[in-house]
Simulated scan of single mutants.
Amino acid sequence: MSLKKKLGLGLASAALGLALVGGGTYAYFSDTEVTNNTFSAGTLDLAVNPTTIIDVDNIKPGDWMNRSFELENIGSLDISTIELSTDYTVSDAQEDNNEDFGDHIRVNFFWNEDKALAGPLSPDQVAFQTTLSDLQSMSPDTVANNIFLPWFEEEAGLVSGNSDTLYVQFEFVDNGEDQNEFQGDSLELEWTFEAMQTEGESR
């Protein structure tokens, strides 16, 4: 073996030895702890009772129908708003009827008695009224606080485990004119209540 090869081999062996020695100098103490963490989402669950608020037949102009229903928060999260969406279909008994039956059905919403600690101000007091046809383009908050008596008011929304009882009146408005075109008509009303969560908060 030539001198040049012997020197190269010696240098390689020395470098390997230094690497092994150097690697040994990085030893250190260590300790490990493990944490177990959980994220559990709450539930937003709204119940409406009864599920059929009104089912009436044989009505005539001038008739009114008082009904009540309960919105209950059966979830674990508080509800900030419950928006009402309205949709309906009309079956005309007469082919030449161009009038919308929903234009002639007025909806009178009474005060939400659960938003006033003293109870309803008056059993006949109307908080808001509109027709079914106009209500289709609205999304009123059914659990809003709009009684305007701050010393009696409950906060808006619906706390987990609580319920609100709402009173509503449907009226087949007698407009004092010929309404024969509505004889035999029927209207299928669908009300959808959409509950929304409250804002996020530090937990």
Rank of each mutant, 00 (worst) to 15 (best):
S2C: 10
K4H: 11
G8S: 08
G8D: 04
S13N: 03
L18G: 14
A19D: 10
G23T: 08
G23I: 03
Y26H: 03
Y28N: 14
D31Y: 07
T32N: 13
T32M: 05
V34F: 10
T35E: 13
N36M: 10
N37C: 09
T38K: 12
T43H: 01
L46S: 01
A47L: 15
N49Q: 15
P50M: 04
P50C: 11
P50S: 03
P50N: 00
P50I: 07
T51A: 11
T51Y: 00
T51P: 04
D55L: 09
N58A: 14
I59W: 05
W64G: 02
W64H: 12
M65Q: 15
N66C: 00
F69N: 01
E70N: 07
I74R: 08
I74H: 08
I74L: 11
S76Q: 02
L77S: 15
L77H: 13
I79P: 01
I79F: 09
I79C: 04
I79E: 14
S80F: 03
I82E: 09
E83I: 07
E83H: 13
L84E: 13
S85H: 05
T86I: 13
T86R: 05
T86V: 13
Y88P: 00
S91Q: 10
D92P: 00
Q94C: 09
E95L: 15
D96Y: 04
E99S: 15
D103W: 08
H104I: 09
H104R: 12
R106G: 11
V107S: 06
F110Q: 01
W111K: 12
E113H: 08
K115E: 06
L117Q: 12
G119D: 11
G119I: 08
P120A: 14
P123Q: 10
P123D: 11
P123I: 06
V126S: 01
A127V: 04
Q129A: 06
T131N: 06
L132S: 05
L132A: 07
L135A: 10
L135I: 06
Q136V: 15
Q136E: 13
S137G: 09
S139E: 02
T142D: 00
F148Y: 12
L149M: 09
E154K: 00
E155T: 09
E155R: 05
L158R: 01
G161H: 02
N162A: 10
T165A: 05
Y167A: 02
V168E: 03
Q169G: 04
F170L: 07
F172V: 03
V173W: 04
Q179W: 08
N180H: 09
N180R: 11
E181I: 06
F182V: 05
Q183V: 07
E188M: 15
L189W: 05
L189M: 05
L189H: 04
E190R: 08
F193R: 04
E194R: 05
T198H: 05
E199D: 15
